[in-house]
Structures are given as structure tokens and as C-alpha cells.
Design a binder for these strands. Structure first.
Length: 484
RNA sequence: GUCCCCGUGGUUCAACGGAUAGAACAUGGGAUUUCUAAUCCUAUGAUGGGGGUUCGAUUCCCUCCGGGGACACCA
């Protein structure tokens, strides 16, 4: 990976290497000289560094700019060499061992199965699914988990079919939802975890005894309370109600303990913005159980608004209820639904434009990306008689060709960055960037032509792009159509 | 009242404390004897207000304004 190699050359792994927005500032740049210079002139410090590295073949040039930035321009020889690696690694390209097999639990959707799946469930669902894909690609051992709230008063009501006008029983709803999740949303869970099992296996009793032993509980007004304020929560929380009934939180404590007992070093939970109040108390629980609060991480998904033009669509016309994920998927297709949901940062409210998502044209980024893939397949299909050069890609030196290779090489960094900060929207953005670089290349470079050597070099580049684009789409769970 | 998220061109969004704030859509102009024009090229246009920290702030801190959400012995 280019960035890591630069770090090695500089000799400092914690150096911040960034990708400047401006092309004249190189392919990569660093502000290291400005940080370490202290009272010395940053430019002089930068010069010393540059002297050490400027002869490296990786760079065409290394220059100092502005107050002391060091800008790196990657050499075309280096770029040309990268194609071979991509063609060899194929679907493994972009994978790494960064995670070293560390066990991570990703819990998502976990809707109360008291009704149909909402758009919010969809957003969290796709987010959790894709983050899991990314973590796996980076070498983590990931369990995708769905927590079934199959116990409690609401559930009892449901068994009688009384909840909010719902006509189905709880088990029917659960069955339907599981089917929608796996078939329509194409999400695969490793574990469907039953809340009830925590009671059957006495885990609730044991964790309650543990908290009591740690003197983190007290009785008040007939109820049993957890001293969550001791760990930064706004108020203490009830574990057992005055009626003797276990509060929901108690199950959550037992469930979290169960996850840690199964060896998960990190637990990520996707929740909707309306549940954010839950974070402080669960972080408190984590610490009370003797773990670090960083070992539990919440990703809060802000609300989804469905727009038709400028108007918000609240209710589904047919059912007269809130629009459900499966209705949306039926309306605009799974690929568009996933892409649009993934495109926004979790902190931003998601405005889903129905009209745009339905549009099968250049306005729609999903088709823009998929069209690039279809074009690649069309060209690639005609390439069967060509022999790729094994490692010599010197002929690829047009601006569009080199720009495309730079984009391909960036994939590893995109995955690495996303593993660190969970900003999943980087992936669809990258897909658009990559598709754009390809379309530009395609526009200005005839792939199959008179010059056999050039043709086969370009075909190799097309094949490499096909690999990376497919890997990117697969991370998002979006199909790669060979024809459109 | 307390807590969480957001405020960037006409619209929807980017930008790990960096250089001339980046895209897409919309709008104006242009490109096809060519492997898929669902494409490409080009023009216009933006950080809510006020303080502070910093060599440097869209980013961090304070405050105000505006929008959304949450504050049960519900989950």
C-alpha cells in the first residue's frame, strides 16, 4: 500500500499521510515537518527529510511546498507495477490481516419484532451488514448478530394479537421479518440470539448476583436499582421492578456479559437515533462488568426521511402504515436501496429521494457505477484472444490510464480507513470515484485497437478495474451486472 | 429543563486541525465515422451569527439562532 510504504520510508509509522485535494500538491502529502520542527524552520526540517527519500524509485518527485508540506508524486513505474498484484490477488485484493483475527461482535437491526421492519431498521441493517463485510476484509473475526426480544409484557400482548392493530402473532411477525431480512435485504446473520435463552440458562440470575456482589445495586421503592450514575450515567436504572418483574435492562446486562464471555473483544451495536439514551447506561454496564467502555461501541443512525420530490412520504399508500423496508426495495430495487442508504454518514439525517432512486439514468449513482462494470464486461468479453503481458505495463502512461491505476491502488487504503473510523459512506463514494476514473479512461483510450501490445496492456488494466470494482460492490452487497 | 445529532452552492451530500472547501443533481454551452452516450468535456455557484484556542478552523471549545430526535419501575 502506497501510504504505508511512504511511512516506512520516512521511518515513522504514526505520520499522517493525506491525499491532497489539489493535484498540484502531489498524490500524497504530509505535514510531518511542521509538527516536528519545534522552533526550527519547518522548511529546513522538510529539506533534510526529502534528501533522504527523493531518490526512491517509488516517487517521480518529492517537493516541499507552502509552510513545509512535503508532497509526493508517485512515479508511473511504480503504478504500472501494481497492476500485476491486483490481477493475481483477484477477489482477495484489498484484504489484509490488520485485524489479526480479533473477535468482534456486530449487533444490528434487533428491532422489537412487534411490527413490520421500518426504514430505520433498514438503514441500520445495511450499515451493520456492510461494516461487517469491511471488518472481515481487514482480517477481523466477525459475528453478525440479531437479538430477538422474545420475552416481556409487550410480547404477551402480541401473542393475543392486540398490539397496535396488528393482526399477526409474534411468531408470525418474527418469521416474516427474518424472511425479509435474509431474502429481500440479503443480510446473513451468524447468530439469532434469543433473549429468552438468557433466562433458561440462568445467565440473568448469575449476572444479577455478580452486580450485587460488586455492591452496585440497592433497593428503593420495592424495586432493585443499578448504580449506573457511578459510571457516568444521568440517573440510576431499575433492574427489577416493584412488581418483581425483570426490567429489560437486566436482559441487556446478561446479554452483554454473554458476549464478553464468548470472547468478543469489541462489541458494536447499531441503534436508531431514538434509542440514543441507551448508550450511557450500557457503557456504564460495560464498566460495571469490569471491561473498558471502549469495548462497547454504538453507531447511532439518524432518522430516514422518504422524499418524493420535495414532499415527504410518511405513509404507504396501499397499507396506510409507515413505509417498510421491503416496500421500498420492491419499489426501487435492492441495489439502489442499499446504495442510497450507505451513501450518507450515520450522523446525518437520511433524505431518501424516491424519484432519483427509481430513475434508471446517469442521474442515479448506482447505475453510473454499475454501468462502468457492464462496459468493462463488454470490452473484456472481446479480449479472450489476447495474452496479457505478465508484468510489463510501460505502455500505460497516458494521464487517464495512470489516474485509473491510482484509483485502483487506493482501494486498500479506503478499506483500512473505514475499519478505523466506521465511516461506511466512504465505500459508495469510492465506487463513484473509481467508476468516474474508468469512464474517463474509456472515453479517451481505445482499448482494442491496431497495436496489439497496447491493446493487451489496456485490457489488463480493464481486468484489474473489473476486479476492484467488483470487490467494492461486493462489500456493499450490490450486484455487478455484466450487461445493462 | 437535561441529553444526542445536524446546519456547507438552487438541491442532496463530502472534506483523519492544513494549502485555491470536493462531488453529484439542477441550470447554461459543447463532444458520437469509436470497444455499451446509462458516457465524456466545459461554465456559474457555498462553510447560519458572534467570540476563543492555533502558524493555520468546515473540523476543537464557548455562546446565540435554526432544524430533527430522546428524556418511564417502555423497549
Amino acid at each position: 500500500m502506497v501510504r504505508n510504504e511512504i511511512k516506512k520510508i520516512i521511518g515513522n509509522a504514526s505520520v499522517l499521510i493525506e491525499k491532497p485535494g489539489e493535484k498540484t500538491h502531489g498524490d500524497y502529502s504530509t505535514n510531518i515537518a511542521m509538527i516536528i520542527s519545534g522552533k526550527k524552520n519547518p522548511r529546513e526540517v522538510a529539506e533534510k527529510l526529502v534528501d533522504k527519500i527523493k531518490d526512491n524509485k517509488m516517487f517521480e518527485k518529492v517537493e516541499i511546498a507552502g509552510p513545509g508540506f512535503i508532497n509526493f508524486f508517485i512515479s508511473k513505474e511504480y503504478l504500472q507495477k501494481q497492476i500485476k498484484g491486483i490481477l493475481e490477488k483477484k477477489e482477495k485484493y484489498g484484504s489484509s490481516k490488520t485485524g489479526k483475527g480479533l473477535k468482534i461482535n456486530v449487533e444490528f437491526i434487533s428491532a422489537n419484532p412487534t411490527g413490520p421492519l421500518t426504514l430505520g431498521n433498514g438503514r441500520g441493517g445495511f450499515g451493520g451488514d456492510v461494516l461487517s463485510n469491511i471488518l472481515e476484509k481487514a482480517g477481523y473475526n466477525v459475528a453478525r448478530e440479531f437479538y430477538i426480544n422474545d420475552r416481556g409484557k409487550q410480547i404477551e400482548d402480541l401473542k393475543k394479537g392486540l398490539y397496535k392493530g396488528e393482526k399477526r402473532t409474534v411468531s408470525q411477525i418474527q418469521k416474516t421479518n427474518q424472511k425479509i431480512i435474509t431474502k429481500d435485504m440479503k443480510i446473513k446473520f451468524d447468530v439469532w440470539f434469543s433473549e429468552k435463552s438468557l433466562y433458561k440458562n440462568k445467565e440473568v440470575d448469575r449476572v444479577l448476583a455478580l452486580l450485587k456482589k460488586k455492591k452496585l445495586t440497592y433497593g428503593k421503592d420495592d424495586a432493585l436499582w443499578f448504580k449506573s450514575t457511578k459510571f457516568g450515567d444521568d440517573k440510576d436504572r431499575v433492574l427489577i421492578k416493584g412488581t418483581g418483574e425483570e426490567a429489560y435492562l437486566l436482559s441487556d446486562v446478561a446479554y452483554l456479559k454473554n458476549k464478553f464471555d464468548r470472547g468478543f473483544k469489541k462489541n458494536i451495536i447499531f441503534i436508531g437515533a431514538d434509542h440514543h439514551g441507551y448508550i450511557k447506561r450500557m457503557k456504564a454496564v460495560t464498566e460495571a462488568l469490569g471491561y473498558k467502555k471502549e469495548q462497547l461501541e454504538f453507531i447511532v443512525m439518524q432518522l430516514v426521511h422518504l422524499l418524493e420530490g420535495k414532499k415527504e412520504v410518511r405513509m404507504s399508500k396501499r397499507a396506510g402504515t409507515y413505509v417498510t423496508v421491503n416496500e421500498l426495495i420492491n419499489e426501487v430495487g435492492l441495489d439502489a436501496t442499499r446504495f442510497f442508504f450507505l451513501q450518507r454518514g450515520s450522523n446525518s439525517h437520511l433524505n431518501f429521494d424516491l424519484k432519483l432512486a427509481k430513475e434508471k439514468s446517469s442521474n442515479n449513482p448506482v447505475y453510473y457505477v454499475q454501468y462502468a462494470y457492464a462496459r468493462i464486461c463488454a470490452v473484456s468479453h472481446k479480449s479472450e484472444n489476447f495474452q496479457f503481458p505478465i508484468s510489463n505495463f510501460q505502455l500505460l502512461d497516458k494521464e487517464e490510464e495512470l489516474a485509473l491505476i491510482k484509483q485502483l491502488v487506493r482501494f486498500e487504503e479506503v478499506v483500512e480507513d473505514t475499519v478505523k473510523d466506521y465511516q461506511i459512506q466512504r465505500i459508495p463514494q469510492y465506487a463513484i470515484d473509481l467508476a468516474e476514473s474508468f469512464h474517463r479512461f474509456y472515453q479517451s483510450c481505445q482499448v482494442i485497437g491496431e497495436d496489439k501490445k497496447l491493446s493487451s496492456s489496456r485490457l489488463a488494466l480493464v481486468k484489474a478495474t473489473q476486479i476492484v470494482l467488483k470487490n467494492t460492490l461486493e462489500l456493499m452487497g450490490i450486484s455487478s451486472p455484466s450487461k445493462m
